[in-house]
């Protein structure tokens, strides 16, 4: 369960980016986060990852109060989350295997386990035959799937994605978002920020629509 309770966020010396935000996403649900550019979608996801601190209010994630989480507990908390970015954030000097393995290495998983779990994750995203490629030799869609494999290889409780299809054409976007829906159907809580109106309509999932840092309640319906 993700729960924003009266969450306000302002960057130093700036107006509020998020204002008194209240949002609830029950465990195992999937929802989309929409809104115009600058509405605060990325900021909201950064709060969830504790890449940014909450200014006021409370943010609860699966029983953890993220807004007051001590710095030294942040790494362990982040290991319960998977995150995908529009620009993949892959390490270009490492092959696909090692990019995905990083998530497990930081939690101290042993080499043998890493082998099998990375392979399994890459199979899931359909890249089982690209294990030793460098990212630069992959297409944009494939790179994004490496990013997704890295985000799910440790079977996180929550999967976050910030415009994961922003750089991809229509059919690839469909593929990627269907992947997210698969994970959600296997019990993962998923929150995806997207601009892509056609996908929003196609998926028919609950939508949180942000405008100027505030949630437009009308579209919150089923979440």
């Amino acid at each position: 369960m993700i729960e924003f309770i009266n969450v306000t966020k302002h960057y130093p010396g700036r107006h509020h980016v998020l204002r008194e935000l209240n949002l609830k996403l029950p465990t195992g649900q999937m929802a989309l986060l929409t809104g115009p550019s600058g509405a605060g979608k990325s900021t909201l996801l950064k709060l969830l990852l504790r890449l940014e601190d909450v200014s006021h209010g409370t943010l609860m994630v699966n029983g953890v109060d993220v807004s007051t989480l001590k710095k030294r507990h942040i790494p362990a908390y982040r290991r319960r989350i998977g995150v995908v970015f529009q620009d993949h954030k892959l390490l270009m000097d490492r092959d696909v295997f090692n990019n995905v393995a990083l998530t497990l290495q930081v939690s101290g998983v042993s080499g043998k386990q890493i082998q099998s779990r990375v392979r399994a994750a890459l199979e899931k995203v359909g890249l089982g035959n690209r294990i030793h490629n460098l990212p630069a030799t992959l297409s944009g869609g494939e790179q994004q799937r490496v990013g997704i494999a890295r985000a799910i290889v440790h079977t996180p409780e929550i999967l976050l994605a910030d415009e994961p299809t922003g750089n991809l054409d229509g059919s690839l976007s469909t593929e990627i978002l269907d992947l997210f829906r698969d994970f959600h159907q296997h019990g993962t809580t998923v929150l995806v920020a997207t601009h892509d109106q056609s996908q929003v309509e196609r998926l028919g999932l609950p939508v949180f629509h942000l405008e100027q840092g505030m949630l437009q309640n009308s579209k919150e319906k089923s979440a």
Binding site: P75, A76, Y77, R79, K89, L91, T103, S107
Partner: peptide
């Protein structure tokens, strides 16, 4: 980059 990404996926 490597440091940032490692930190993102929960490296201490």
């Amino acid at each position: 980059d490597e440091i940032d990404i490692a930190s993102l996926v929960g490296a201490t």
